[in-house]
Design a protein around this nucleic acid. Sequence first.
DNA 1: AATGAATGAGGATTCATTCAT
DNA 2: CATGAATGAATCCTCATTCAT
Lengths: 193, 193, 193, 193
Amino acid sequence: MATPQQPRRGDTRRRIQDVALELFAERGYEKTSLREIAEHLDVTKAALYYHFKTKEDILISITDDLARPVDELIAWAQSQPRTLATKQEVLRRYSDVLWGAAALFRFMQENQATVRELSIGESFRSKVSALNGLLTESESTLTAQVRSCTALFALHAGMFAMQGIEADPEEKRAAILEVALDLVAQAEAAVTA
Amino acid sequence: MATPQQPRRGDTRRRIQDVALELFAERGYEKTSLREIAEHLDVTKAALYYHFKTKEDILISITDDLARPVDELIAWAQSQPRTLATKQEVLRRYSDVLWGAAALFRFMQENQATVRELSIGESFRSKVSALNGLLTESESTLTAQVRSCTALFALHAGMFAMQGIEADPEEKRAAILEVALDLVAQAEAAVTA
Amino acid sequence: MATPQQPRRGDTRRRIQDVALELFAERGYEKTSLREIAEHLDVTKAALYYHFKTKEDILISITDDLARPVDELIAWAQSQPRTLATKQEVLRRYSDVLWGAAALFRFMQENQATVRELSIGESFRSKVSALNGLLTESESTLTAQVRSCTALFALHAGMFAMQGIEADPEEKRAAILEVALDLVAQAEAAVTA
Amino acid sequence: MATPQQPRRGDTRRRIQDVALELFAERGYEKTSLREIAEHLDVTKAALYYHFKTKEDILISITDDLARPVDELIAWAQSQPRTLATKQEVLRRYSDVLWGAAALFRFMQENQATVRELSIGESFRSKVSALNGLLTESESTLTAQVRSCTALFALHAGMFAMQGIEADPEEKRAAILEVALDLVAQAEAAVTA
DNA sequence: AATGAATGAGGATTCATTCAT
DNA sequence: CATGAATGAATCCTCATTCAT
């Protein structure tokens, strides 16, 4: 039965991703150097290059792994009827996805200027855009569209920006979701009315 | 008479601020080098240092100039009764402030990770926090609090993140404000009820 | 076989130290740029940073290596009786140490203003001070104390400042040592008398 | 009459020299920037250039003013018989000169590496050399020559390097002079014997 | 699977100096 | 008598990346 004490073998790749994401989210992409990442892992910079072609590649690999659920969510939603129930389920699931990979989404939100110039930028933007499209009916009121859109951003903002509100994290998350659900409901109401 | 060919003459300091903010907002703070700024202005890097002590100092000076209205708004709000009307007026004025210095606030939003490590980070955070405090009643429902908070972020997000919605900018801005106003109204209703 | 054409191979670190010390002693610490050092070695500036964290670090490493004998001398002297014989042996050995790392001590002497602001400054000062304490009896005449002190500085000055006197280096060194030995003898005599 | 309150007029040139010397002696020539000097005087860098052609020029002017006594001393000594009495008087007067312009000589001693590359370097070296020549008889013993030389350096070292010895400054200075006088006496004795 | 040694490009910053006003 | 504005050259240092071993 192996030596569990050992710093694991073979999973270096994942450890790099973990540390990199942590640092990227903490200090920003540009301000995080490969030297830092390597030092945190007690490895050489060159070791990183054995596992990844470039710095950007590390980020891409992280995104590939962690953002897949968003694609799955979009795919699922596209196969459903465009009802209020679906939209609300999208929000519920999106909330799960967001909290499941909080570090990555925090990173995306706090490094938008940087990410925009990276290859993942476009793909991320298009995902958010797709989600938005699923929630919004382009023929409805401008106000209704904004409401749907806001529902989405409420979830985003809720992850980190609402630290002013003190409450049990899970309760807070529930409250945020509630507000978001309500927003799409109102948006829908405007159309149906 | 009138303005001669070269627009330089004492206004270099302001020109630096303008170009810097433009580039910071466009490409991010870290990725914008002083060389770039200097080249855009057709000046030497050293000239920048005649006007500002450090790179960060350029940003600080911009913030000092452009974020003052936020402080004024906060001061005003603190002298008003904590009624729904006040809160809605805060949102209206904040919307004006935001659009009046769009580039700066866009920068702040898209470079959060960077800004957090800069001296302006804390001061910006505390301003948003103060505004939040003015909109939120800490003894009200969690949901109500989230709603107030969301009103604020709707304005923020509205500036750049809602590009999916195609409409006349002014109309869109009005719609966003309307949603925000509605959110605080709903929050207030919960308390009063 | 034997040493091939290129003498590089793991000894880069030492080569940097050698060239750096040479240039520091020749042109002064501030006036010696890392570019110069790199060029003398036919390496990139960045290579220096692979081996040393900072410019000051290069100097520190040199001092660590070359000033050790002084510490050993101090330690030895402290384990001996405070007799004239011991003091004279201290001077003899110090003379050896000084001439054994002439470039470093020349540097220290000719860059005092600079060194004072560097981390090695304090440690160097304290070494000289310790040596002085070993030669001087604080309860003896002021003149006697000055004489002991002068003995030490005669050795220092002798290394470079006495170029006016033309003579065989070794003979000159012997003469300087003789004068120094004589000075402590006179100092001691005053006490004993 | 007149306004003595005023920050003096016309003596700016001297004030620059004073501040410059103070800073040069304190932090070293290279590490003292013209900006620093200007700031200490509450003037613009450009103002310095009104009074002096270059940074080096400031130092030259200081040296010209303060080192003149050394030239006078040398001239006087050359007109005297080469007796022990003369040599001792040279030391006495040199001690006065040294303590009369302590900052300058401290600077010279602690910035030798820098000074060597400046135009004043050669002139300073030649003065010390001339003094040495006046104290030393080239046909005497090597040891005797070293003794004379050491007498001179004892005075130099005495100014700053003997801070380990605690005593009233004037008494210390007297003791140092005594040791120096004694050294040339011993040197002379060897020849006469 | 990883290291040791190095590079080239570029970063922010500082300096002595100039000159029109 | 002095300033305000600017420059060109240099500084130390950091970074992502490479490659032979």
